[in-house]
């Protein structure tokens, strides 16, 4: 599918999606509670067949926390980026996509570890790199560690 067709397809699946034309990929922004159902439809519908999650990344924006899903189809070789944001910084929650793509397990654990976004329905949400008793989430912009991060 070309980007134009993908755009129509996404809008037919969820009409509230905001679609921005990126440099190479379409970026589809959806609210956190709609993300899982849209991702499920995109994966399971025959003409999109997004069966491979390339990359899942979290971003700490000034006003909210964002999660990006870069997905592609091994059958049709088209790709798309899904984006969702959550304004709640203390109890940020997004539905886990583990049941769709198993590779999300480690990606989501990493995002939870470094940005503190909780993924509901994740089978084993623990910290990935840091100790279990670590305080704070280092990739947040307001994280401070006077001992190891020297501000210049």
């Amino acid at each position: 599918m070309t980007n134009e067709q993908l755009k129509e397809k996404v809008l037919s699946l969820y009409s509230g999606a905001q679609i921005a034309e990126g440099k190479q990929l379409l970026t589809v922004t959806v609210p956190a509670e709609e993300l899982y159902s849209l991702a499920k439809k995109l994966k399971e519908s025959d003409d999109t067949a997004f069966d491979y999650l390339m990359c899942l990344s979290g971003v700490d924006y000034p006003t909210n926390l964002g999660v990006f899903y870069h997905i592609t189809s091994t059958k049709y070789n088209h790709s798309i980026a899904l984006k969702t944001t959550t304004a709640d910084r203390v109890n940020a929650e997004v539905d886990s996509v583990y049941s769709l793509w198993k590779s999300a397990e480690y990606h989501e654990r990493e995002v939870y570890d470094l940005l503190g976004i909780k993924f509901t329905n994740h089978p084993d949400l623990r910290r990935m790199f840091l100790d279990d008793d670590w305080v704070g989430h280092p990739l947040r912009k307001d994280y401070s560690d006077p001992l190891n991060i020297i501000e210049r």
């Binding site: 990359c55 990344s57 971003v59 700490d60 990006f68 870069h70 590779s103 397990e105 480690y106 990739l139």
Partner: peptide, 25 residues
């Protein structure tokens, strides 16, 4: 490589998708 830029000389956020971490899963 996933770069989020806010127009400054430093990237706002850089993410590297490590092939090893995903293969390990």
């Amino acid at each position: 490589v996933f770069i989020v830029s806010d127009g400054n000389k430093n990237p706002y956020r850089v993410k590297f998708r490590s092939p090893n971490l995903v293969n390990l899963s």
